[in-house]
């Protein structure tokens, strides 16, 4: 998959590396500020209270 991606990208190797760096940065940004905060709301966590049971 990643090998195929590498072959599909145009230009010499440093252009491909540049494209990939930009793409990875964009993915990390989206994960940090949109995907992870959303997933975090779905995860049950933080039972910090005592309750009768």
């Amino acid at each position: 998959m990643y090998g195929a991606l590498w072959r599909v990208l145009p230009g010499p190797w440093w252009v491909r590396v540049l494209i990939l760096v930009v793409a990875v940065a964009a993915i990390l940004y989206a994960l940090t500020f949109w995907v992870f905060p959303f997933v975090n709301t779905l995860i049950p966590q933080g039972d910090v209270t005592v309750e009768g049971g």
């Binding site: 994960l31 940090t32 992870f36 905060p37 975090n40």
Partner: peptide, 14 residues
């Protein structure tokens, strides 16, 4: 890798 990144994000960044 993404799941590990999420854990790191939860504990350190968020």
């Amino acid at each position: 890798v993404v799941v590990l990144m999420f854990l790191g994000w939860q504990i350190w960044i968020n």
